[in-house]
């Protein structure tokens, strides 16, 4: 029984490390797209993907250092990411982020 617990703990540790490596590779590729994207929309989408990968990285970090206090941070990253992407999209579309009167 004790052996089984150690085995699962080892499995969780190894799979978390593999996931961190995968997300790091994904972040590097997305960073390349954000630096070398031909248009501004490419860079915006790349930044959006970087933010989503950061949410995953924060969740994996919460598994590594065993804590639940990082859950608020994950939700916060998601919300700020949504608002930031919305602002970039609105700037690319209209030129203003907060306009005076929509209608």
């Amino acid at each position: 029984m004790n052996n089984l617990l150690e085995l699962t703990e080892q499995m969780i540790k190894i799979s978390t490390i593999i996931c961190v490596i995968g997300i790091s590779i994904s972040l590097l590729l997305l960073l390349y797209r954000a630096l070398a994207g031909p248009s501004n929309a490419d860079r915006a989408v790349a930044l959006d993907g970087i933010g989503i990968n950061l949410m995953g990285l924060a969740a994996l970090l919460a598994i590594i250092i065993v804590t639940t206090k990082l859950n608020d941070v994950i939700l916060l990253i998601g919300i700020l990411l949504f608002i930031g992407t919305l602002a970039i999209a609105k700037f690319l579309e209209k030129g203003v982020i907060i306009d005076r009167n929509v209608d």
């Binding site: 608002i83 919305l86 602002a87 609105k90 982020i97 907060i98 306009d99 005076r100 009167n101 929509v102 209608d103």
Partner: peptide
Amino acid sequence: VLMYMSYGI
């Protein structure tokens, strides 16, 4: 800010 962005000032 989200409300301001989608509905205007």
